[in-house]
Design a protein around this nucleic acid. Sequence first.
DNA 1: CCCAATTTGTTCGTATGTATA
DNA 2: TTATACATACGAACAAATTGG
Lengths: 258, 258
Amino acid sequence: MPPPAALPWPPLHHEPGLPLYRAVKRALLTAIEDGRLPPGATLPNEAALSAAFGVAIGTLRQAVGELVAEHVLLRRQGRGTFVATHSPERFLFQFFHIERADGHHEAPVVELVAFNRGRLDEDAAEALQARPGDTAWLIENRLLLQGRAVVHDSLQLPQSLMRGLTERRFRERPGTIYRLYQEAFGITVLRAQERVRAVAASAETARVLGVATGTPMLQVRRTALSFADKPVEYRVSTVLTGVHEYVQTLQRTAPGRS
Amino acid sequence: MPPPAALPWPPLHHEPGLPLYRAVKRALLTAIEDGRLPPGATLPNEAALSAAFGVAIGTLRQAVGELVAEHVLLRRQGRGTFVATHSPERFLFQFFHIERADGHHEAPVVELVAFNRGRLDEDAAEALQARPGDTAWLIENRLLLQGRAVVHDSLQLPQSLMRGLTERRFRERPGTIYRLYQEAFGITVLRAQERVRAVAASAETARVLGVATGTPMLQVRRTALSFADKPVEYRVSTVLTGVHEYVQTLQRTAPGRS
DNA sequence: CCCAATTTGTTCGTATGTATA
DNA sequence: TTATACATACGAACAAATTGG
């Protein structure tokens, strides 16, 4: 009878004063970050996991529960627990907050306008905790909703995080941009911070969206964050509002059954 | 020995198919809504509550935990569990998302500009699930941040929900506006939906804030909701951005230790 | 269509730790 | 110090959803 395979879980280092379930959570996060649990992977069942960590099943469930609340894991009764991936649905509900004034919410059609290598500007460098002038991918997109050009997106991505990106690879990605980050570079976007201002349409935005220069528009500056709040993308979205709006619900509903 | 006092809790009607902790949660919500647990009240301890409901302590904790996540209750280790009130801190963190571009976040100084009785306009009526032309309180405020006029607020409140409101009572409220709703009318604002657009400053906003007509400004239209998602306030905020911005963090942090 | 195996969801009960007054 | 309250951790049993035979 062969010996049991070595368990792939990092040891729990349980510092006194910190709850045990936090140590379990950290161990799971570490396994996800370093690739032992890639996006989409199925975790062992709760009994097996709790045994592997040497904790009670309730303790394991508390750790997993927090990761589910943070959208790092996904639990499905009868099926199992999975590492979350960046599906179009997740993008739509967690990261895309533009919808029609009547409440209609749909995924945008993304058109690539420009793809270049260049340098981070000052705002991007600050948001990305990098230096202005660092080499970066500079990407411009136009977003259509029901055939109308509504958003002009300008992305700045540190080249150091995304080596080997090409226009073709970007253009021919099968899913969302965040899934491309995940599959091509192992970068998982977990959350984002957005700062919104009103601006007058610049000449370039006016050209991309076909509006008059000076039109009042919404400017959304997003910093996307990965594990440990590491910034990985800086994006400026300029939004033509009126027909469409930027929507936020303050204070969520109960942590729901999926 | 006197018989034990009648328990003030509504009976659990536990429909099959629904988890027991949801029935407990509903019973607690009912007690809060109908005034048996007024804002600020201390709940009985968990052992007593679970006994009163006839459920295990873990089940009670699951119900309370969801209400804490929704900011309906507040749990403090060593002290107890309390019905949430509308403190200035809660307003600042849950409902006021304007801050300086450098991240400085402070409570605004609110100046009353106008207080009138009038009628709901069409947008307000739709948001409040009422009829255009219904009698309403129409209130205009100017919000200052570090001495600068930054926001022009226009509130519409159904008179049917807030009978007996006077300018003096509004002006001399001791706390936040939402605390006034809570203490004077038993209306607790739990969450809000905001829809943001870019607009050109109207003549009135230009006058109130001292900017040029036509300046690009942020228009935030907020519907504040109480229990069962009942709308209780419609508010249009016009924000001068540049120095200040509208900030959102997408995707919460872990359900934290308070 | 039903049944059995698997997995998470819910509920129970108890004991101990930590923060507060 | 003592008492009280919530927080954490343990373990067990059954319910509900899913899947495959």
